[in-house]
Simulated scan of single mutants.
Amino acid sequence: MHLLFATSIVPDGALASGYEIANAAIIAALRRAGARVTVIGFSWPGKEPVDPENTIVLGALDVRTENASSRRKLVWVAKAMLSGLTFASVKLRAVPDSEVLAAIGRAGPFDGYVLNSVQFAGAFEKLFDGRPSIFVAHNVEHRSAQENAAAAGSIFQRFLFRREARLLKTMEERLCRRARFVFTLAEEDRAALGVAVGDRSTVLPLVTFKQAPKQRGPRQIDCDAALIGTWTWQPNRIGLDWFLEKVVPRLRPDFRVKIAGSVPSGVASTHPGVKFVGRVPDAEAFVRSAAVIPLISTAGSGVQLKTIETFELGLPSVATSRSLRGIDHRPANCVVTDDPVAFAGALEAAAADVRDVDGSAFHRRQVKALDTAIRHGLEKLGPVRREVFA
């Protein structure tokens, strides 16, 4: 079986975001199931695809809103209003339909599409009717847009997010209705997308490592807690705001918190132990240097890959209930609470008595369940003809 994996940004091997980590895990699982996978989409400027022989690049494109100039953002908003597309999809309309169709033709004979999230599929929706498809819903995007609207700081932002939510809801309904099968990353997302009834969908349990991380010797701890993420993404920003405003003020003044990743302007903390360290060269080394990992999601849908990574590494954690969505098993060294006072107390207790566990069993359980779910979805497209690779 030959599948065309249609996505906004093609994998370049960097795995710099949760979206890219999830894509790598899904593509690897499709190939383990015996499918040949050709990826089509845009690349980041200056980046090359990690698998060029099985990748079709439509051009280089930076779709990050935070990197765009004010003029560029206004152009995107104007195009979205005129075209009826979402803001996220209109950013991908950098090439005409004819170029995308020509690129699809270069992929050669294939059996079906894997439409990876709504952004690319929504930008070129009419082009994917000629073959059966599987839709991968990384999130319930219209729910996230609704939450973003509620948290927006201006009337204009609320208007834009509410418009996104309305358009995304109808787009997700269409993609799910047309798909032979739907993959979600959390159980509750199946009901939210209306595909929980009957044999229409299943959850993809994900991993962040190709192989189970090996247990190392005692860790060198240089801070009490560490967080890393793309904080410019609004659902992550909502969780970070909750942590800084509700939890951090309840921590001891000498409790050391390091926060890595791109942080929007205006995000700050008066707590003397909080440090914003920006981009770090080794994300795994960064989190392993902390006594405990706060898992702080309070908004969004889909799965929290930072939670999965923490469990794979066997690190102690304190998590909100939303951080555990899409995850069936919680290790013994994870404390769950949504109460800020209890959250702060649990962080201090975990940092005072560091207890790592072996995360390899969690990793193996996730891989086995992922492969089972992928095979089940592929059956809806037809029998898998195992490809022979040189």
Rank of each mutant, 00 (worst) to 15 (best):
A35H: 11
F135M: 00
V263F: 01
E348G: 07
F87W: 12
E284S: 11
P331T: 04
E284Q: 14
P52F: 05
T65S: 10
C223T: 13
E20I: 01
K246Q: 15
A14S: 14
L185V: 05
L295N: 05
P218D: 07
I27M: 13
R174M: 00
W231T: 06
L251V: 07
C334D: 09
T208S: 14
L85V: 00
Q215R: 14
E188S: 14
E387R: 07
R365P: 05
L30M: 12
L244I: 02
V388D: 13
G239F: 03
R322F: 06
G300R: 09
K210D: 14
L101V: 08
V336E: 15
R158V: 07
A226V: 13
V114M: 05
R163S: 03
R325P: 10
V197R: 14
R219W: 09
D224W: 03
L101F: 00
A68P: 08
V140P: 04
V10T: 08
D353Y: 00
I40K: 07
E66D: 13
V336N: 04
K258T: 06
G153E: 07
P272G: 08
G46L: 05
V248R: 00
T232R: 10
T230V: 12
P383C: 00
N67K: 14
D371I: 01
V287W: 01
G278T: 03
W233Y: 15
A29C: 02
A121N: 02
T170Q: 13
L315T: 00
R237S: 13
I374G: 10
R375D: 12
F343N: 07
R256N: 11
L61A: 03
A123H: 05
K126V: 07
Q211V: 12
R31S: 12
A191M: 09
L61E: 02
A191R: 13
